[in-house]
């Protein structure tokens, strides 16, 4: 059975945890921008951790249920409603035939995840359903299209609904402005002064923020540095082009690039950053690899224990 898309909104995409193993051919990973919200969505429904979900950016999205099922909503609070009744994120809800589920506009955060019992049924391309519009890969059509009006989101009918919610302690604080960075790549090439400036100033998210990367505005750094020989770009890498304004590279990033990089935003901070929008302010804090590992494992352990 299925949901019918009545309003496609600004940007609603089929996503999973990404397309891995093809970056050597220039194929990016894609995948849920907020990995932790995505993982919780599947955990709430006892789904496989990769089970396809819909990532709804900003809102203005609505679907009509063709059959009963159980859903989970995680991530941003986009003022979701079920037949005009407000739905709080981070929990499961029973869906009946004919129900209208809508996501309106951001209250807190930017991207909400809609998970369904068993996962949406979508054919993978290169092992993943992740939609990457720029590369024309993944999604319902297989060629990277975002959802549009009339699309049919297929799921297995399920009458078993279990009311569950994510423990309060495990819910992220999307208003938090601290973004953790592991220094690396060309960090040593930045002057001591620029290193200090980077970690002591506030940056504002520019209008140019998308799934590929977030361009920041603030204290310019590393303007005297020249380009480097193109090298692989990992998730969260912060590249600094010649205008000195950092760009944090996220899920749909290019696989290689030639700008110097001051370090990498951690997985958890990358997820937090993905929930922010143009105009929001952030600041960076340097942490080491062991701390980054600890941060991630703590999040995943909470999820595992809860499951």
């Amino acid at each position: 059975m299925a949901f019918n898309v009545i309003k496609p909104g600004m940007l609603a995409l089929v996503q999973d945890l990404g397309r891995h193993g093809y970056q050597h051919l220039g194929v990016t990973t894609g995948g849920a921008m907020d990995e932790y919200a995505f993982r919780w969505g599947n955990a709430l429904l006892d789904n496989d951790s990769h089970a396809p979900q819909i990532e709804i950016t900003f809102g203005m999205f609505a679907v009509e249920a063709q059959a009963a099922t159980s859903i989970a909503i995680t991530g941003a609070d986009l003022g979701a409603t079920l037949n005009d009744q407000y739905l709080e994120p981070w929990q499961t809800y029973a869906i009946h035939k004919g129900d209208i589920l809508a996501f309106h506009q951001p209250q807190v955060g930017l991207r909400a995840y809609l998970a369904v019992k068993g996962g949406f049924v979508v054919d993978p391309v290169l092992g993943s359903v992740a939609t990457v519009m720029r590369e024309q890969l993944g999604g319902l059509t297989g060629v990277g299209d975002k959802l549009s009006k009339g699309d049919v989101l297929v799921f297995q009918t399920s009458h078993q609904h279990q009311a569950r919610h994510v423990p309060r302690l495990a819910r992220p604080d999307y208003l938090q402005s601290q973004i953790n960075v592991v220094t690396g790549y060309q960090y040593q090439q930045f002057s001591r002064l620029d290193q200090a400036r980077f970690f002591s100033s506030t940056y504002t998210l520019s209008q140019h923020c998308d799934r590929m990367g977030y361009r920041l505005e603030g204290q310019a750094i590393g303007q005297e540095l020249s380009g480097i020989i193109s090298e692989g770009i990992t998730y969260g890498a912060i590249q600094v082009p010649s205008d000195g304004q950092p760009i944090v590279l996220l899920r749909d990033r290019q696989t290689i690039g030639g700008y110097p990089k001051i370090g990498c935003v951690t997985n958890l901070s990358g997820a937090l950053l993905s929930q922010k929008k143009p105009g929001d302010q952030i600041h960076f804090r340097a942490i080491n690899v062991a701390e980054a590992e600890y941060e991630r494992h703590l999040q995943l352990a909470r999820l595992q224990q809860w499951r």
């Binding site: 891995h20 193993g21 093809y22 970056q23 050597h24 990973t29 020989i229 193109s230 090298e231 692989g232 770009i233 990992t234 696989t255 290689i256 690899v289 590992e293 991630r296 995943l300």
Partner: peptide
């Protein structure tokens, strides 16, 4: 899980959920 060869470097991504760095 991923390898990105380039001119002078090789970027190796690994699965930290199941393997120790």
């Amino acid at each position: 899980i991923d390898i990105v060869p380039s001119y002078t470097t090789l970027l190796v991504t690994f699965d930290t959920d199941h393997y120790d760095r």
